[in-house]
């Protein structure tokens, strides 16, 4: 029993913590992509940062977080500017512009990785795509008490520290600029006339998404990052009509997906008698997808089931003399 507790604290706890922090941070900033109807931007940014990560790594020569983060932020800023430029100069809709920019930049990153591999450096694209949640270990703990022991906590893996910092940064900025983020997301034109620089906030969101994505990559991989940027925010939108509740709920659902997904990957197969556990990042992405599906089906007002019930109520309340259902609804819309 003591052994399994230690195993949990040393192997599962740090990985789970990293997943929870990554999912919470991605879910929080993901709101501003989903509500701006720029969900593809998450995809674009998380791919476009690859050449920056590799470039930072090549320049610094280490896998330290800071140079890679700096390179990635530069690449994200470049991607943001390029997307805007392609959209304007090429007169394309923004989805097409994003598609052009992020594929080209991702390809450049892959080429850079090949070059790095040629010079005998260990960095591979798989790790960027799938992450390495399973390799995050915390060797210090000796029992439950270690969770409160500063010396042991200082030994938490670097990925967890980085994710904790990024989550705190995201939460702090969202709290600080709550009002400004709300108005620049809903009505950037009005925000501009009030002297709130909507363009700067757009790029700020892009950079924050980039920082979050990079911090989360290493731990959970880019596929999970993309899922977590979209799914919790989209699910929360089905459950509430209030902005603050939307932000809080998305973070909650992100954490829920992390816990369920990790549990489903690490423990469920063993309980079911399987030999191996599943890929945790993949299961978390699946869990977030399931949560979104449930929210779409059963959301109180926007869910499919609830909406059908609403329709029936409208039909029932329409008098027989009036026109049939669709026309009644049309008048309300």
């Amino acid at each position: 029993m003591e052994l399994t507790l230690l195993d949990f604290l040393r192997i599962d706890f740090p990985a789970l913590l990293a997943a929870v922090l990554a999912c919470a941070a991605c879910a929080l900033v993901g709101n501003f992509l989903v509500l701006r109807r720029q969900g593809l931007m998450g995809d674009a940014i998380s791919h476009a940062v690859l050449p920056g990560i590799v470039g930072g790594f090549l320049v610094a020569g280490t896998r330290e977080t800071l140079p890679m983060m700096a390179g990635a932020l530069l690449a994200a800023a470049l991607a943001g500017v390029l997307i805007e430029a392609v959209r304007r100069l090429g007169r394309l809709e923004s989805g097409a512009a994003m598609g052009v920019v992020f594929t080209v930049m991702f390809a450049a990153g892959v080429v850079l990785i090949e070059r790095a591999a040629a010079s005998g450096v260990d960095l591979d694209a798989d790790c960027v795509l799938y992450g390495q949640l399973e390799t995050i270990l915390w060797l210090e703990p000796t029992g439950w008490g270690s969770l409160l022991d500063p010396a042991a906590l200082a030994g938490l893996p670097r990925e967890v520290m980085t994710l904790g910092f990024v989550l705190a940064l995201c939460a702090g900025l969202v709290l600080l600029f709550y009002k400004e983020l709300k108005i620049t997301t809903f009505d950037p034109a009005l925000a501009s006339t009030l002297g709130i620089p909507a363009g700067a906030f757009h790029y700020g969101v892009v950079l924050l998404v980039a920082a979050t994505a990079i911090a989360a990559f290493e731990a959970v991989g880019s596929i999970l990052v993309i899922a977590m940027l979209i799914c919790p925010a989209a699910a929360a939108r089905m459950l509430t009509d209030r902005f603050a509740a939307q932000l809080a709920l998305s973070v909650l659902l992100g954490v829920l997906a992390a816990v369920l997904g990790y549990g489903g990957a690490a423990f469920l197969p063993l309980w079911l008698g399987a030999e191996h556990s599943l890929n945790a990042a993949g299961m978390i992405a699946v869990a977030s997808g399931l949560i979104l599906a449930l929210a779409v089906l059963f959301g109180p007002r926007h869910g499919l089931v609830g909406r059908r019930r609403g329709l029936r109520r409208v039909r029932a309340s329409a008098t027989p003399a009036s026109s049939p259902g669709p026309a009644v609804l049309g008048g309300e819309a």
Binding site: L35, L190, I196, F243
Partner: peptide
């Protein structure tokens, strides 16, 4: 967008 009518009107006060 997940805001109420009052929220939207309050945006007029943000300046």
């Amino acid at each position: 967008f997940p805001v109420s009518a009052l929220d939207v009107v309050a945006m007029g006060r943000y300046g």
